[in-house]
């Protein structure tokens, strides 16, 4: 069965495009966590979030969105609660995490515990491979993530 069924109560969604340098940070994060903990979480990769992702996240108690950011953050990343918000993009081919959470609550009366991991990127041209700075930020974000999931485990347990 090609990953059609759920195996975890936590979903990690990497957002981005590995063909545009550091925009691949979200996918790189997911790839790394999956390689270390293949059975602990469910994983998804997205170029863009879409409306139907609101239905997907309803199946989970906890959702972590991971994306690159152009912001300059002292720690190289930020990890924060993702609160629902009603935003909308004209093309409708792309939604932001807050809107996906909003749609889940509006359509399905479900609001998973949602978080946003934003990792600082610096290079965005058409090329594969993360910049050195992005790799440093990615490693910091991963380290922090492992601390965070200890906290999740203790709360769940």
């Amino acid at each position: 069965m090609k990953n059609l069924k759920l195996k975890s109560n936590t979903l990690i969604i990497g957002i981005g495009n590995s063909g545009r340098r550091d925009d691949g940070l979200g996918w790189a994060f997911v790839n790394e966590i999956q390689s270390r903990m293949p059975d602990d979480f469910d994983y998804e990769w997205r170029y863009q979030l879409q409306v139907e992702d609101s239905e997907l996240i309803c199946n989970y108690e906890r959702v972590i969105f991971v994306d690159a950011t152009t912001e300059e953050l002292h720690s190289g990343f930020s990890f924060s609660k993702c609160e629902l918000a009603e935003h909308y993009y004209f093309s409708s081919h792309a939604q932001n995490p807050e809107t996906v959470v909003y749609l889940a609550a509006t359509l399905y009366d479900v609001q998973p515990d949602a978080y946003m991991m934003a990792i600082c990127g610096v290079e965005w041209e058409l090329q594969e491979g993360l910049s050195e700075a992005a790799i440093t930020h990615l490693n910091k974000a991963i380290s922090h993530f492992f601390e965070v999931i200890q906290d999740f485990s203790s709360r769940t347990g």
Partner: peptide
């Protein structure tokens, strides 16, 4: 937009 559709026509959305 689809968000407005979702709010006002939940079943359709």
């Amino acid at each position: 937009n689809i968000v407005a559709v979702a709010v006002e026509n939940r079943e359709l959305a």
